[in-house]
Amino acid sequence: MAIVAEPQQPDLREPAGWRRTSNRIATWLMVLAFVLVIIPLGFVLFTVIAKGVSIISWSFLTSGPIPPIVLPASVGGLGPAVLGTIEITALATVLAVPLGILGAVYLNEYGGKGPLARLIGFMADVMTGVPSIIMGLFIFAIWVLHFGYSGLAGALALGCLMLPVVIRSTDEMLKLVPDPLREASYALGATKARVTVTVVLPAAIGGIVSGALLAVARAAGETAPLIFTILGGTSVANTNVFKGANTALPLQIFSNATQPYTGAQARAWGAALALIAIAFILMIAARLVTARFTRYSR
């Protein structure tokens, strides 16, 4: 540059040209992607609430028996299905979440790169890809054929679906725990079990709970594996989760929504709204639990 009499002020404006243009295009593409993601979600929520809210009442959620499909919406309720969903999902959670967390702890803290750890990791990935209806058929073949339909059979199928998700999400969370924390604990004379229980798991608990509840929410909405395992034909509440056919909200959505009767369709929308509400409540519970466990993490 030629010699200038006065020092020029530096140009601090955003650079013009392609750099600025590409930056703006990328920003708007991301905004667009976000909107595209939000639209179907908002639309689903809006539709389900709009069509389901009129039938939702305390007695709809708690009373039974489930009326025959031809009856109008004002009769009876889906209490047995709500109860069945809660029973089966809770049992599946009890079966799958502790097992999944322990599996992930083995993968990450104990197994290292050993053959068993790699086998478990590989099998978890394979299980993630198994369609849910296959999982239902599997439990049908090994359990239902011998012991009959029951909520437990449904819980086994849902548990098999949840297990790999819990293993993988927990594994990812444990990987995020910094090694210096483990070292600090070892340097105080802690055993491996102590390090895992008192340092690693507490540090990762927020993510573990979130991942587990996501798996629970997904499982609560599964329909196909339940058809083979709980039958779904009952209209009265079955409080015994270990014996006899049961029913659940997703099955009620399926059987009612496919009917031409207005009462049945209204009940299907109500069941859909109830299912979404359960997932929503679980998410809020996850946030509260996580906040409680991670109050020292910052």
Partner: peptide
């Protein structure tokens, strides 16, 4: 006992 290069307090 050991004290490390980077301070590593537990999240407690």
């Amino acid at each position: 006992g050991m004290v490390f290069q980077k301070p590593n307090p537990f999240p407690k």
